[in-house]
Amino acid sequence: MPKAHVYKRDHVNTDEIIPARYLNTDNEAELATHCMEDLDVDFVKKTQAGDIIVAGEDFGCGSSREHAVWAIRGAKVQTVIAKTFARIFYRNSIDCGFYLIELPDVFEKIKDGDELEIDYKKGLIKNLTSGNDISFNPLPNFALEIIADGGLLNHISKK
């Protein structure tokens, strides 16, 4: 069952998500092996396919490197739940067809290691550990359309 990895931090930045010393490649599998390395050196080791990153405000601030999204996606993380997201990271995620969840009181509702089941269509997170249902606002429609098309390039090719 997908587990939450909670970082009780604001401003988790792109240098922590994927340090620039690894930006000499854009290979997603290779980037994934360094995902979150400067924040939590054990992240990749302890993360299983489908797990979820949870953090505070301004997640993904800093560089425009889409490598940050690719590293997270490459590490098979299914989504990031944060209080807020930095603008370029948010936009890059939508462009890549990678869903993000904004949740203002995230730290009250999700603890490290909680098992979560997410229904993206209904906007509902089932916290199987605490037994609580957590509703969230889905992404705006234009973003959902881009994600449904599998990212921005597919979306514009269709137009």
């Binding site: 560089s63 425009s64 936009r91 890059n92 462009d95 514009i156």
Partner: peptide, 30 residues
Amino acid sequence: GGDSHTCTYGAFGAFSTGIGSTDLAAAIAT
């Protein structure tokens, strides 16, 4: 520009902003 500090050019009274690689691809093509 595919760089977050593209906002620099706003000093000239232009609208200027940083984007990632997918947006860059879209901008290059369209």
